[in-house]
């Protein structure tokens, strides 16, 4: 069952006045422009035991993604394709408000939005991941681990996922006998086959104003937000409206336009990092 989240009613309202009055003058509490991301830092392959991994910081929000590959059974309706599974864990060390236990609705929503945004434009070439068609395929586990929560979890998780998938190298297949597939987890071969990259841009709404990449402080006063997933061809490959208020049609149009513009920036950042990993990658964890 989904419940209205508990909010402390007094502090955010005072804060909201301050945040809104600043936004009306085109400023934000942390000094950013309305359409500006916080600084993004990236580390590739921080986890050597994963087939691919990445850590991303957007401001103080830190997300890590580890990609693991296993041999398994395909879905019965797609027998000749590999399987993609996206999970998100909001572990209690990331925020005083997170509790241990199974993923809550926010973690599930984050994972599912990212799952759809990767799946629908066929970002991963799952058809190339069949080992014995109909019987054995690669299962791609994209596990999102949120380490520090300072707002805009989805964009950080998506960026980390896309980077981790890009640097994923598949374990080598040692032998195939009948339907028995033996792999060597310690030797890595080919790169995971990808078609394109996807990024998400999350835009928050406060009164009649729109802010890109809301921080946690800003999120606590948002009326609503929209996450737009955009692929490297400039197509919209996912949408999720969140929060307890609505958007007019004009507002949605504005948000989409802004998201497409910001997505371009994120895509060029992705390309830059992947082209020059040594230069662009910093040690985060």
């Amino acid at each position: 069952m989904s419940l209205t989240p508990v909010q402390t009613p007094i502090i955010p309202r005072l804060k909201k006045e301050k945040i809104v009055s600043l936004i009306k003058t085109g400023k934000r509490i942390d000094g950013r422009r309305l359409d500006e991301y916080r600084p993004i830092t990236i580390q590739l392959n921080p986890i050597q035991k994963a087939e691919g991994s990445a850590a991303v910081k957007i401001g103080d929000t830190m997300a890590m993604v580890g990609v693991k590959l296993e041999v398994g059974i395909p879905y019965s309706d797609r027998p000749n394709e590999g399987v993609l599974q996206v999970h998100a864990e909001f572990v209690p060390l990331a925020s005083p408000t997170f509790e241990p236990g199974p993923p809550d609705e926010n973690a599930i929503e984050t994972a599912r939005v990212i799952d759809r945004s990767l799946r629908e434009p066929r970002a991963i070439r799952l058809e190339d991941l069949a080992i014995i068609p109909g019987q054995k395929v690669w299962i791609v586990f994209n596990d999102i681990y949120l380490l520090d929560h300072d707002g805009n979890i989805i964009d950080a998780s998506m960026l980390a996922s896309m980077l981790a998938l890009n640097v994923t190298k598949m374990p080598k297949i040692v032998s195939i006998e009948g339907d028995k597939v033996v792999i060597d987890k310690d030797s890595r071969g080919q790169k995971l086959p990808l078609n394109l990259n996807v990024v998400t841009v999350t835009i928050g709404k406060v009164d009649k104003y729109f802010i890109v990449d809301p921080s946690l402080e800003e999120e606590s006063v948002l009326d609503a937000k929209i996450t737009v997933a955009v692929d490297s061809l400039g197509r919209i490959v996912g949408l999720q409206k969140m929060g307890m208020e609505g958007f007019t049609e004009d507002e949605v149009d504005y948000v989409i336009e802004l998201a497409l513009k910001k997505a371009k920036e994120l895509h060029s950042l992705l390309e830059k990092v992947l082209k020059n990993p040594e230069e662009a990658s910093k040690s985060i964890v």
């Binding site: 692929d231 197509r235 919209i236 490959v237 996912g238 999720q240 409206k241 949605v252």
Partner: peptide, 13 residues
């Protein structure tokens, strides 16, 4: 007012 909006798939703007 649009109160629910999701997209599962690919659309051009």
């Amino acid at each position: 007012k649009i109160v629910l909006l999701q997209l599962n798939g690919v659309l051009t703007p």
